[in-house]
Design a binder for these strands. Structure first.
Lengths: 147, 147
DNA sequence: ACAGTTGTTTTGATTCATTCAAAACAACTG
DNA sequence: CAGTTGTTTTGAATGAATCAAAACAACTGT
């Protein structure tokens, strides 16, 4: 939960993005600023703890607005629901655990814009290179097997 | 549609993978060997042209078996249903059109195993690096806008 | 060639994440 | 403070994929 000051910071971010400042938007931004990579449902359950009247559809709407405004990034790892994160603007990549689906951030790997120049791109105007590393996280290496 | 000789080749591939040779499996392998990146539903509609009794669930089952056997690769670009391709074993990457969702293959970009070493991987045992390039394909650059 | 076993396919229903649409409502403008 | 625009609620619907049980077919050894 954010203090009033923190909420005003978040409100400011919304205003700079030309978005109306509403309680659900502050709440969603707040939740995402804290933790790492959350799906819509997790965001929803966290939001309703403090804002019980919020609907799941509102959360979807807010997330879509925040993503469109560039305040939130949406990633969709194969086999998981879409995940949202507040870290934006640095085009970092992701490490996904094949076992527990946990997601970790990784910074850009090779130089600044790695792998941004495929050898033959057939006239494609490439805009983003998205890199997902699949592996087994340290907890899952330690534990026998997961659910 | 494959000739009898081609079907025998596909059957051999199934046998080498310890999979029973069945008509739906041959048909699915055949469809995927021809075209590029197809979703389950497209595979299904193509298969039933020659094998009308095949069910969609059978196609899902066959695709899962082929993927598990390593004969087919499954990719799940954000915003599209899962796509399947017969090109396996070379860990190539994909170029996805933001507009028409068309997918093209791209060969590995930097050396043989590009981007396989994130700077800080926090104990993660990385197994695959999956790279997806997002951009606009040449047809969509030419045309005004798509559906 | 044939019966048995194992694994596949069919049939039918269900789940999950997400989206759509209309009405009620709230934030910002002047 | 009233008006306009955009947001949220409410309720329903969609698409992709999965589950489960029964019917069936492919390979094994004889």
């Amino acid at each position: 939960m954010a203090t009033d000051t923190q909420q005003e910071v978040l409100a400011g971010r919304l205003r700079s993005a030309q978005l109306k400042v509403t309680a659900p938007r502050i709440a969603v931004l707040d939740v995402l600023s804290g933790r790492g990579h959350l799906d819509a449902d997790t965001v929803f359950s966290t939001v309703i703890e403090h804002l019980p009247k919020t609907s799941l559809q509102a959360v979807y709407g807010v997330l879509a607005a925040l993503v469109a405004a560039g305040l939130v990034r949406k990633i969709e790892p194969a086999g998981s629901p879409a995940l949202y994160e507040a870290r934006v603007g640095d085009n970092h990549h992701h490490l996904v655990c094949l076992n527990c689906k946990q997601v970790q951030d990784v910074d850009c790997v090779i130089g600044e814009s790695p792998c941004l120049t495929p050898s033959d791109m057939n006239g494609f105007a490439v805009q983003v290179a998205e890199i997902t590393f699949w592996g087994v996280c340290s907890s899952c290496q330690a534990a026998p097997a997961a659910t």
